[in-house]
């Protein structure tokens, strides 16, 4: 399929990725070649075939409603790029 720069830009936005114009072009070319490669699946007749999203037909993995020990706040915040000892900090959500 043809992939326009605009489409790639939109996908990048969905994926929260930023590219320079130059990167955008090389990515478009690579993506297009991968997409045309995977498009050979069109040759497979999948009429009436169910999707397979799990390798095994497992079901009902359930847990009892019992409290388990979690992490201390200190441990939870230990890897945070920014925190105030209580909360994670991020640039303003409301611009």
């Amino acid at each position: 399929m043809q992939l326009t720069i605009e489409q790639v830009r939109k996908v990048a936005q969905l994926a929260r990725l930023e590219f320079t114009e130059e990167q955008l072009e090389s990515f478009s070319a690579q993506l297009a070649s991968i997409i045309s490669f995977v498009e050979q699946l069109k040759d497979v007749d999948t009429e009436g075939v169910e999707v397979l999203s799990h390798p095994h037909a497992l079901q009902d993995a359930l847990r009892e409603d019992e409290v388990q020990e979690g992490l201390s706040r200190q441990a939870a915040l230990a890897n945070a790029p920014a925190h105030d000892g209580e909360c994670f900090l991020v640039p303003p959500v409301l611009g």
């Binding site: 409290v67 388990q68 020990e69 979690g70 992490l71 706040r73 939870a76 915040l77 209580e86 909360c87």
Partner: peptide, 20 residues
């Protein structure tokens, strides 16, 4: 507890103390 983990769901606990 929460939907997918064993953390309690008590309202008003100090921030980030019911996490895993």
């Amino acid at each position: 507890t929460k939907l997918f983990c064993g953390c309690p769901t008590i309202f008003g606990a100090p921030a980030n103390t019911q996490v895993c």
